[in-house]
C-alpha cells in the first residue's frame, strides 16, 4: 500500500529539506504520495514533485487550509487517508499539531518523532528526552507517524512526479487565525543548517547575543539558544534547541555559555561535531563535546571569530 506524506508548506512555500528527509525515511515502506495543503500550495506541489522517490503529489488549495489550522487540515487528511497504510509527516510543530488529531479521528495511535523505520509496523523513537530509545510495533490498521528528520539524509531532487488536485477541506469554523509573529532573518534555517552556533544563559543579555551572532555569521551558521536564554528574553522562542524545542544534527554545533542539561542535549547530541566554550570546567556539556575550551566566552568568542 502507499504512504501519504504530508509536506511542510508554510505560506505557500515548501519546506523542501524537511519534506525530502521525510521521503527518505518512509520510502522503503511503499509508494510515496505527497500532500501539499494550503491556501496556496500549487507551487509547493510542483516543487515536491521534483523529490526523487515521490510517486504522486496531491495539491489541496483552499482558503480554509490557509494557516494550517488543525481542524480543517486534519479533516482533509482523514478524508484522503483511506487506501493508505501510513500517514506520515516531518515532525514540525505543524505536524505535531495536526497528526495526533488525525490519528484519533482514525482511532489509531500516533507514533511521534520516529528516528528509525525498521519495517512497516516497527519504529524507533526516543523517549525521556532521548535518554532511551524505544522500539515499538504497531497493531493499528493505519500507522500515523511524525518523522524526526535530523537523522535522515534529504532525498535528492530532479524527478517529476504527477501532480493532481484534490479537494475536501471542511471548515467548521472552530478556530480562526489572528496573526503570525515571524522574525525574518537572512541566516540559514536552524533545523537544516550545516553549522549551528547556540548561546545559553551565560550570554547574559539580549544585546550580548551579538557575540553569538557574529561567530554564526562568520561560519555561515544558524543561531540557536537554550531554554534558559529564551526564557530570559535573550533570544526568540523559535531558536530553542532541545527536548521541547528544535532537534538539530548539524555537521558542527557550537555551544556557548550552555551548561548541557539533558533537555538541551536532547536537541543536539546527534550533531556530528560538537564544540563547547564554558567558563566552568565541570559543565556537563564537555562530556558530549568533541572539542572544549574552558574560558570566559566574552574574551574567547570574539577572539575565535577574529581568527577563523
Amino acid at each position: 500500500m502507499a504512504i501519504l506524506l504530508i509536506a511542510e508548506v508554510t505560506d505557500g512555500q515548501l519546506g523542501l529539506d524537511a519534506t525530502a528527509k521525510a521521503v527518505s525515511a518512509v520510502k522503503s515502506l511503499g509508494e510515496v504520495h505527497v500532500l501539499c495543503a494550503g491556501a496556496r500550495a500549487q507551487e509547493a506541489g510542483q516543487q515536491a514533485a521534483t523529490i526523487q522517490g515521490v510517486a504522486k503529489v496531491l495539491v489541496a488549495e483552499d482558503p480554509a487550509l490557509g494557516h494550517r489550522l488543525a481542524e480543517p487540515t486534519a479533516a482533509l487528511i482523514v478524508g484522503l487517508a483511506s487506501g493508505y497504510s501510513h500517514v506520515a509527516a516531518p515532525a514540525t510543530t505543524d505536524a505535531k499539531n495536526v497528526l495526533p488529531r488525525v490519528a484519533a479521528l482514525l482511532d489509531v495511535m500516533v507514533i511521534s518523532d520516529v528516528t528509525g523505520v525498521i519495517d512497516a509496523d516497527t519504529f524507533e523513537r526516543p523517549i525521556y528526552a532521548g535518554n532511551a530509545i524505544q522500539t515499538v510495533k504497531s497493531s493499528d490498521k493505519v500507522k500515523v507517524l511524525t518523522i524526526r528528520t535530523a537523522g535522515f539524509d534529504a532525498a535528492p531532487t530532479g524527478a517529476s512526479a504527477l501532480v493532481e488536485a484534490v479537494s475536501g477541506a471542511q471548515d467548521a469554523g472552530l478556530s480562526q487565525w489572528v496573526e503570525d509573529k515571524v522574525a525574518k532573518s537572512g541566516r540559514p534555517e536552524l533545523t537544516s543548517a550545516p553549522v549551528v552556533v547556540s548561546g545559553g544563559r551565560g550570554i547574559g543579555s539580549k544585546e550580548n547575543f551579538a557575540v553569538v551572532e557574529a561567530l554564526a555569521d562568520k561560519l555561515g551558521a544558524a543561531v540557536g539558544a537554550s531554554r534558559a536564554a529564551v526564557d530570559a528574553g535573550y533570544a526568540p522562542n523559535d531558536w530553542q534547541v532541545g527536548q521541547t524545542g528544535k532537534v538539530v544534527a548539524p555537521n558542527l554545533y557550537v555551544a556557548l555559555g550552555i551548561s548541557g542539561a539533558i533537555q538541551h542535549l536532547a536537541g543536539m547530541k546527534d550533531s556530528k561535531f560538537i564544540v563547547a566554550i564554558n567558563k566552568d570546567a565541570e559543565a556537563p556539556i564537555f562530556q558530549v563535546a568533541d572539542f572544549g575550551l574552558v574560558a570566559d566566552l566574552f574574551e574567547a568568542v570574539p577572539a575565535l571569530t577574529e581568527k577563523l
Partner: peptide, 25 residues
C-alpha cells in the same frame, strides 16, 4: 496499540579533547 519491542540506551559520545587556548582551538 504500540507494543514495546525493546528499550535501549542511545549511542554514547566519546569524551573529547580540551583546548588550552583560543589559538589551539
Amino acid at each position: 496499540r504500540l507494543a514495546v519491542v525493546k528499550t535501549t540506551e542511545p549511542a554514547a559520545r566519546k569524551a573529547g579533547v580540551m583546548a588550552k587556548s583560543v589559538e589551539e582551538l
